[in-house]
Design a protein around this nucleic acid. Sequence first.
DNA 1: TCGTTTTATCGCAATATTACGATTTAATAT
DNA 2: ATATTAAATCGTAATATTGCGATAAAACGA
Lengths: 108, 108
Amino acid sequence: MGSSKSLYFSEEQNRLAGLSKALSHPARIAILQYLVKNHTCMVGGLMESLPLSQSTISQHLKELRSIGIVRGEIEGSSVCYCIDEEKWKELTEALQGLIFDVNKTCCP
Amino acid sequence: MGSSKSLYFSEEQNRLAGLSKALSHPARIAILQYLVKNHTCMVGGLMESLPLSQSTISQHLKELRSIGIVRGEIEGSSVCYCIDEEKWKELTEALQGLIFDVNKTCCP
DNA sequence: TCGTTTTATCGCAATATTACGATTTAATAT
DNA sequence: ATATTAAATCGTAATATTGCGATAAAACGA
């Protein structure tokens, strides 16, 4: 076993879990914060600000890209990353919905 | 390797990642939604609504408990679970901060 | 007390994640 | 053409997660 039984859960539950998984590592949080601060970035800048190797950072970026909240555009010989506003909004709205629902029920 | 280098990241980055990790499985999302719907619950009810074994559900609950967003109180021979409002608010506020920061920067 | 119910924990197997060095790929500069 | 730079990918090792059956623990009822 060990494989998550995604099929048995609703699409929304999987979407929320998927976004959360993308945010579930401090390096990926740091990458997002870096993108917010620098608006866009080259991977080189990340390498200076994160205690991780180039290949590891590249992997984390791949994960953020794979759910669509980060996008990279080739710019000369480097790649310029930025947050995909549309996708970010779409996904985080679902998350905010959950947060709202819990607060509404729990803390009236 | 394979161990996450949490020590090298800020407390806030780790807190955000920790909450996200707790939410990163559809079963745990489903558990939270169930708690919202039923306000409080016995594990028995969860067992009927989730396609997972009792021991697996117990493990997911343990994870939610371990970061504090879910609390269980012994009630007779069963345990009554509910969302810990304080902790939930505290943690989700940090997450909403990140969502807000991204939206502010990206989508003015 | 003995069985029942309810939940937690243990032990294990399968799979996923994290990390890094080495290598590859692609664009650019010399 | 060749070297340089930037980033992705490959291969591999360490560790974490997911899941379940079996077993333990705790409270209750007969």
